[in-house]
């Protein structure tokens, strides 16, 4: 006797998709909460901020460094024509990335490739020896 469960009860595939769900990084559920999406990572000497901003000229993106934050700002233009479907975000956007460590403002490097902005912020050398001069009065 052959019992074919396949149409009712696709257990192997259900199990597989269940495991697939488990593999997925849960952090990705945060996707598309704010525009543009930002990833932040930290190494010993640097803070690396990456952001997906497709279709933008580097000149149209403004990066500002404040005392405690990096601001990514810009505006996406509408295309000319008769829209049938519009899903790509347009208009101005801004993301503020708080930096919990002081960074060296003159050593910041920003590059853009395939719509990915990558900003490398070297941490300020906290261990830099400070000599304090004493004024004789």
């Amino acid at each position: 006797m052959v019992i074919d469960f396949s149409s009712y009860y696709d257990l192997p595939r259900n199990m597989d998709s269940f495991f697939e769900e488990l593999w997925k990084p849960s952090s990705l559920s945060q996707r598309r909460v704010a525009y543009p999406p930002v990833n932040i990572s930290e190494s010993e000497g640097e803070i690396i901020v990456t952001s997906e901003i497709p279709g933008m000229d580097t000149g149209d993106i403004e990066l500002t460094l404040n005392e405690k934050s990096l601001i990514i700002r810009g505006a996406k233009k509408n295309e000319v024509g008769n829209y049938y479907r519009q899903e790509r975000p347009t208009g101005s956007f801004q993301r503020i990335v708080n930096l919990n460590v002081p960074v060296q403002a003159d050593g910041i490097k920003a590059t853009m490739k395939d719509g990915l902005l990558r900003v490398v912020l070297p941490k300020a050398r906290e261990s830099r020896p400070l000599t304090i001069s004493i004024d004789a009065q």
């Binding site: 697939e20 997906e52 008769n82 049938y84 479907r85 519009q86 899903e87 790509r88 395939d114």
Partner: peptide, 28 residues
């Protein structure tokens, strides 16, 4: 593991010469 799949944001518009489709594919 296979890469997670996404439906990219897309604009479809018509101009006099034809249709223009813009697909956001950062990192590609």
């Amino acid at each position: 593991p296979a890469l997670p799949r996404f439906r990219p944001n897309t604009d479809v518009l018509e101009r006099e010469d034809g249709f223009h489709i813009f697909v956001d594919m950062p990192g590609v």
